[in-house]
Design a protein around this nucleic acid. Sequence first.
DNA 1: AATCTCTTCAACCGCTACCAT
DNA 2: GATGGTAGCGGTTGAAGAGAT
Length: 272
Amino acid sequence: MGRGRAPCCDKSKVKKGPWSPAEDLRLVNFVQKNGHSNWRALPKQAGLLRCGKSCRLRWINYLSPDVKRGNFTSEEEQTIINLHNTIGNKWSKIASCLPGRTDNEIKNVWNTHLKKRLTKKSDSNMENLSCPSRTSSSSTQHMLQIEKSIDDQTVRLSNTIDSPTSSYASNYPKSTVLTPNEATGHPKSVVPSNDGKAEMPLESDIDFWDFLDSLDPLQFSTKSEASGEKSDGDEIECKRWLEYLENELGLSGVDNETKEQEIVTTVPQHEG
DNA sequence: AATCTCTTCAACCGCTACCAT
DNA sequence: GATGGTAGCGGTTGAAGAGAT
């Protein structure tokens, strides 16, 4: 480790910046069919002008059905605060305790909301020195327990989720329901606009998210997790989802080859 | 209404950990 | 054990939107 660094991709040939709906669709489509055992090779195989890292990030933080959108509940915030107190900036570990939340999201929430809030609080606490510190032995013990449970959970998760051969379907968590439109709801996808077709923002269509909501994650996870293969039911659901996506993107009614070409040509090139 | 400033968060970058050879 | 390749993590950035002036 730590020896030199090979560039993860040819930077001159990859697109950067916000993802277009067409790219999203292409990535979802590909991961759904082939899983994501090799992120580096994925962009080429999927016909995306992105680097593997970018694809991975986009999937994990935004496109994965695991991702829970919307405001953090006070319980979630408290969990973050507690865990951060214990383990510091271990965002992925914290995320593993908050189903549906990504490390990036938690990091953002911490930096933009929680940190400031706590700073304010501690400022006011400084004025009130009698405030008991959380470093009492009992709370320390409590934190150690939390830390241990995080480690246990991390091990469990790594054993059950995301095996190298895992399919898209197996990424559905057992209990997490995709709730993209709760609270602020829909992801704020920034849609580059040098092409009319790719302009349609996904989040603008309530039906789309309602449809996603209507999909039963368990249906995806249970069978395929057990068998390692997609069942017919899964495929039908996946197809429905994809068809809907294509519809939303204005890509339906076009034969596949034309569609593929269209997506590639509508992907704006690296904007300066 | 126009402009400026602040806030938010998606995406990028660089590094390390881990695995295969 | 050394080396190379890939995945994942955490810090940082910058565009876009919101709010203030």
